[in-house]
Structure formats: structure tokens, C-alpha cells
Simulated scan of single mutants.
Amino acid sequence: MKIFFVERKTGELKVETVAGDAYLRWTYDTKMGRSILENIMKKKFFSKMIGLYMESPFSRRRLTSFINELSIDMSEALNENISGYKSFNDFFIRKLKPEARPIAKDEEILISPADGRVLVYDNINVCKVVQVKGLDYSLEELIGDKELANSYEGGVCIITRLNPSDYHRFHFPDGGIPITSKRIEGSYYSVNPLALKKVAALYCKNKREITIFQSNNFGEILMIEVGATCVGTIVQTYKKDKQVLKGEEKGFFKFGGSTTIMFIKKDKVKLDSDLIKNSDEGYETKVYMGEGIGKRN
């Protein structure tokens, strides 16, 4: 099964290059693979072991092939020289040149918090938030707070899936103040579309971190970072209760694919029509951190 997405800049329908594609399919499509997944790969110790290797200098030997296989543009990186990275993870959490991700400054524009492939849903039913067609989950189960979940009824959900090739730092979609946060421990399933079609309520099973962000222009926003296979660490770099600027860094994911999810309350934002159209047709849209994805109502 090929994974298609829309390249927003051109409108072209493209096929995603998936790192470890054959291994991923074996894991989720075969009996033996699923057994290893449930007994080993989804466990914290497995991602922790992979993480330790990715932090070691020995992991640097993978950099050249990884960059070439996934066509990563090193001219965007603050440090363009591969030899300047101490480990694979040091490269994976690389910072970019400021001009590589310009921020849409208009206060009426909501920006993408990360690079990735986006699905958007408006007028959501918090008891049946779409994971993929045919599978859903409840917002209460995702965040562990029924009253808070119910306050987002009829609002919007924005899911940004980060491919291993993507820039892996995430940012604030507007200026404002992050006021509360909590961590929910969980498993480490892949967030690849193949896995999302196989594991019900996957986001509710994986490790995740939840921040209530009081934005300047879009009201209260739930910002959720979801870990995945080999993402043993989600690092938050912001300070609670301190004013942040639009596009300011919130944190980063260490090695692996991962996902950010935002929930915004009803009548606060109008999502861009191309994102809605593509999502309705079942296609993710490739977006970049800092570009507009909606406007204030």
C-alpha cells in the first residue's frame, strides 16, 4: 500500500518515501511481526535501547545514507556540515536557519506548529474523533479529562504527522501563554498510516504530553505531542506561565516518527479550504512550520 500526500506548494499528489518500509509492513501485516510488536517493540525499553544507540557516536555512520535516502535538504540546517553532528540524534534534532521557516506574522493567521503531513477536521464530535476512516477515539480518553474534552465539542482538530525525514522541533501556533501541562505514559506504536489503520485508538495508547495553551487570537488550544516507535523522549523547552511569541520553539522529538495534535474550540478558527478538501478526500497535506493553516473567525 502506497502512502499518498498532497504537496501543498504545487498541489501535486506524491508518494511518501517511508524509512524502513518493508520492515514496517512486516511488523503490522504478519502474525510474527505483530507478536514481536506487542511483546517487544511497543514497550518503553525497546525505544530506550534504540535511543541510547542513536545518542552514541557510532550512530553517525547512518547519517549519509539516511540523508540521501530521504532527500533531506541540508542547506536549510543551521549546521550544514554532517561531520559537525556528534550522533544521529544530534542531527535528528537539528535546528534550521531562521529564513528556512518564515513565520506568517499576521495575527489573524494560525500557523502550523511543525513540519509534517496534516489532516484537519472541523465540527468534531469529541466522542468520535477521527483517527483514520473507519476508526475513531474519544478526546476524553486521549487527554484523561472529561470536562475539558467536552468543552471542545464542535471545534477543530489538526493532526500533523512528522516523517523521520522532517524537521523534528515543534513550535507555538500563535503568541500566548502555556498555562498547564501533563504527561501520560503509554506504548510506542508507529504513527505511520499503516499502523493507524491497524491499531484502534492508537493515539490514546501511545505516550503523550498535553499542554493547555492560552493563545492571543484563537482562545484556549490543546497542544498534544504523541510519541511513537523509537521516540523514547519528548523534550519540552518552553517555560510554563511565560509569554511566548508566535513560532517560538515549544520542544522537540528525538529519533523516530511522531505526531502533534491541536484542538481548538468552536468558532475560533476557520481552517484553510485546501486542507479541508484534501482531508475529506483522505489525503494528508505537506505543510511546513510557520505557514498559515487557518484564520481567526
Rank of each mutant, 00 (worst) to 15 (best):
S75V: 03
R61P: 04
K270A: 00
Y189G: 00
G20P: 07
F91V: 03
K128S: 12
I264F: 06
N89S: 04
Q214S: 10
G247D: 00
S273K: 02
I224T: 06
K268E: 12
T30Q: 03
V132N: 03
E291V: 13
D21L: 15
M54L: 15
N79F: 15
S112C: 15
A149C: 11
L196D: 00
A114Q: 02
K207V: 11
H171G: 00
K198S: 13
K42A: 05
V231Q: 01
K286T: 07
D29K: 09
R169V: 00
K197M: 11
K240T: 05
V18E: 04
K197T: 05
R208N: 10
G176Y: 00
N123I: 12
G134I: 10
P98Y: 15
V287A: 06
S215V: 05
K242I: 10
V287C: 12
K254H: 14
R61S: 09
M1V: 03
R117C: 09
P102Y: 13
L110S: 04
N125A: 11
L96P: 05
K266S: 03
R183L: 14
Y137A: 02
D274L: 05
I40R: 05
D267G: 04
I3P: 02
I103L: 11
K197G: 10
N150T: 07
K48C: 07
K95T: 04
F88S: 01
D166W: 03
N278T: 13
K95N: 10
A104T: 15
F4C: 02
L13W: 11
A22C: 13
F92M: 07
T259N: 03
F252T: 00
F170I: 01
I221W: 12
S83M: 06
I293A: 08
E107Q: 05
P164V: 09
L139A: 15
K48G: 06
Y28H: 06
D267Y: 07
V129T: 10
I221Q: 11
G256W: 02
P178S: 06
L135A: 01
G154Y: 12
I293K: 04
I261F: 09
T229H: 08
G134L: 07
